[in-house]
Amino acid sequence: MALKAVAMNQTGDVGVLAHVDQPDPLPAPGMVPVHIAFAGVNFMDIGASGHGIDRNAQSEDPGR
């Protein structure tokens, strides 16, 4: 069974999000697969898609 995913391959509005099929991931030695029935898109993912948010930015507070 193929894994259903939403991919974002470029910056932009929600129009850059695409439904794609991916092969089922194989667990590494010592790991087990976990089947997810439902998932969501994080607010930060939406912001990073086209609003100039740096996904690699570091916190100003090293304790965070």
Results as ranks from 00 to 15, higher is better:
A5L: 02
A5E: 04
H51V: 02
A39V: 07
M31L: 13
V14L: 09
E60S: 03
A39Y: 09
G47S: 11
G40E: 11
L26N: 09
A2E: 13
P33Y: 06
A5P: 00
F43Q: 15
H19Q: 07
G50I: 12
T11R: 15
D13P: 08
N9T: 14
R64I: 12
G47C: 14
F38W: 02
M44Y: 14
V6I: 11
H35N: 04
A5M: 01
V20H: 15
P25D: 07
I53Y: 11
N42C: 04
Q22P: 00
G15Y: 12
N56E: 15
M8D: 13
M44I: 13
D54L: 12
A57M: 02
M44S: 11
H51E: 10
L26G: 04
H51L: 08
N9V: 09
G50W: 11
I53V: 09
L3H: 02
M1W: 06
K4L: 09
I36W: 03
D54A: 04
I53M: 14
F43D: 09
I53K: 13
A18I: 15
E60L: 13
A37I: 01
T11D: 13
A2H: 04
G15N: 14
F43Y: 07
P27N: 11
A7R: 12
P62Y: 01
S49Q: 07
G52A: 13
P62N: 01
M8E: 09
D45S: 10
L26A: 09
G12T: 03
Q22H: 14
D24R: 01
I36H: 03
Q10R: 05
N56S: 04
L26Y: 00
R55F: 12
L17N: 09
